[in-house]
């Protein structure tokens, strides 16, 4: 369904003082370097890496928030750059994204009804009754029940978990084929985390959505992902089914990542290897 080949994104190095030094001219930051993967309908691929590994940039490239330096993204066989150029709105109906920060991702001035209905409005749907019905049904689908009690609320009146559910409702109201979830639970309380993760899993399965689940936290991937891709410094260093990667990692970097998974049992304290104590995950 989603087929990514040699995706690459380079940025011109930030124009700081160092760019004035000889030899620094024209330096580039290689955020994403030749990344390839594919995701089938209903499948969830976990993209795991530390901050700065290029995993979020990959997500932004896929939804069209950034333009790739090179490489191709194919959705159902058609090139996404060409599709976006041909019909921007149609392209955005197919790919949606859930953001890490549910506080910043919801416009504080809008009500839940406006927030969830806006994508339809931007897509040119003018039938108010139809929009209202869709909003209610997706709110129910993401577990905000009864939907009527949430419609008039503003984001600041919702809990973190409820906000993320609103974000998910907004993402699925256009019935996308492909969904990027960029660290969707990293800012939520542990108690809510698992509910959201299970919700995402269910949506992917029921709606047949191909999902890229971006995270730095290997603890949740088992519950949601079918396959894993480990990203390090802009490259994918290992990929495979979740159980295989977690139980028998072939890459040294993957091994250090796994060693850092907090144990579910608080009595067992795992001491990370010294190399990892400095790593910021």
């Amino acid at each position: 369904m989603i087929d990514v080949r040699d995706l690459t994104k380079h940025y011109a190095a930030a124009a700081g003082l160092r760019s004035l030094l000889p030899g620094r001219r024209g330096a580039v930051t290689r955020a994403v370097e030749g990344v390839s993967f594919e995701i089938g309908a209903g499948e969830v691929l976990g993209l795991v890496g530390e901050s700065g590994s290029g995993k979020s940039t990959t997500g932004r490239l896929l939804v069209g928030l950034e333009t790739p330096s090179s490489g191709t993204i194919r959705i159902d066989g058609s090139d996404s750059a060409a599709a976006r150029a041909r019909d921007k709105k149609a392209f955005h109906r197919q790919v949606q994204m859930i953001f890490q920060d549910p506080y910043g991702a919801l416009n504080p001035q809008h009500t839940v009804e406006e927030l969830v209905g806006r994508p339809l409005l931007y897509q040119g749907v003018r039938d108010r009754a139809k929009v209202a019905a869709s909003v209610r049904s997706v709110l129910a689908e993401v577990g905000l029940n009864p939907p009527e009690s949430y419609l008039a609320k503003h984001p600041h009146q919702l809990s973190g978990g409820q906000r993320q559910r609103v974000c998910i409702a907004r993402a699925i109201i256009l019935e996308p084929r492909f969904l990027v979830a960029d660290e969707p639970v990293s800012m939520l309380d542990v108690s809510i985390k698992w509910d959201i993760v299970r919700l995402l899993k269910r949506l992917a399965r029921d709606r047949g959505i191909a999902m890229l689940y971006i995270t730095h936290d290997l603890a949740t991937v088992g519950a949601v992902c079918d396959r894993l891709a480990i990203m390090y410094r802009g490259r994918i260093v290992e990929t495979g089914p979740v159980e295989d990667v977690l139980s028998a990692p072939s890459d040294t970097y993957t091994r250090t990542l796994i060693a850092a998974i907090p144990s579910a049992d608080p009595d067992i304290v795992r001491v990370p290897p010294p190399a990892l104590q400095q790593a910021t995950l």
């Binding site: 392209f91 790919v95 910043g104 416009n107 806006r118 994508p119 931007y122 907004r170």
Partner: peptide
Amino acid sequence: PFVAAARITG
């Protein structure tokens, strides 16, 4: 992010 969210809905 809400600006990016609006952008990707077209």
